[in-house]
Amino acid sequence: MDKKLDVIELFDEEGNAVKFNVVEFLDIKNPETKETNEYVIVYEDGFDEDDVIALKVDIDEDGEDLLVPIDDEEELALVQEAYDSVVID
């Protein structure tokens, strides 16, 4: 994914375009699987930066970037910890 992006446009369940401001891109290596995944931290345009959302960058069947919500609590905690270390430092 292009890490120079400041804004990402996604679509909600009704197909409406929603703009998200990019806060940070993170490459995180899972200590258990040793797999590195890419994540993007965003917040919806018009909302406060304190209301961030973490999305995982995945690849669809056409080889295009796909942003997906993180359903796994352990994975989300790993992303939160990495984000906190970047924001605090």
Rank of each mutant, 00 (worst) to 15 (best):
E35N: 13
I41A: 03
E81R: 11
E14N: 12
P69D: 06
N30D: 15
I41S: 02
I28S: 04
A77R: 03
D89T: 04
E35P: 05
E24R: 11
N30E: 09
F20H: 15
D27H: 09
V42L: 15
D45G: 12
G15W: 06
F20T: 04
D2A: 15
L67R: 02
L10K: 15
D71Q: 13
E64W: 01
D12C: 12
N37M: 07
A54M: 09
E35R: 13
L10Y: 08
K56R: 14
K34R: 10
E32M: 06
F20N: 13
G15E: 04
F11E: 10
E32Y: 08
K29F: 05
I28K: 02
E75Q: 11
D45R: 15
F47C: 08
E81W: 04
E44L: 13
D50Y: 12
A77S: 07
D2Y: 12
E9Q: 06
A77G: 03
T33N: 11
D89L: 07
G63N: 14
K56Y: 06
F25C: 02
I59T: 14
V42M: 14
Y39P: 00
A17Y: 02
D89H: 12
D2S: 15
D27T: 10
N37L: 09
T33R: 11
V22P: 01
F11A: 02
S85H: 03
L55K: 12
G15R: 04
E64V: 00
E49L: 06
E64I: 00
M1C: 08
E81Q: 12
T36N: 05
L26I: 05
L55I: 10
D51S: 14
I59M: 13
L67D: 05
P69H: 10
E24H: 08
L10P: 04
K3V: 03
V7L: 13
I41N: 01
A54K: 05
L78W: 08
Q80P: 00
A17V: 10
L78K: 09
G63T: 11
I88P: 00
I8P: 01
V68F: 01
E32Q: 10
E24I: 00
L5F: 01
K56M: 12
E75I: 03
V40G: 01
L10T: 13
E74R: 03
Y83E: 00
V86N: 09
D50T: 14
I70H: 02
D50V: 14
Q80W: 01
D51P: 11
V87M: 08
V68H: 01
L55P: 07
D65T: 10
K19Y: 12
Y83K: 03
G63E: 13
E35K: 15
D50R: 13
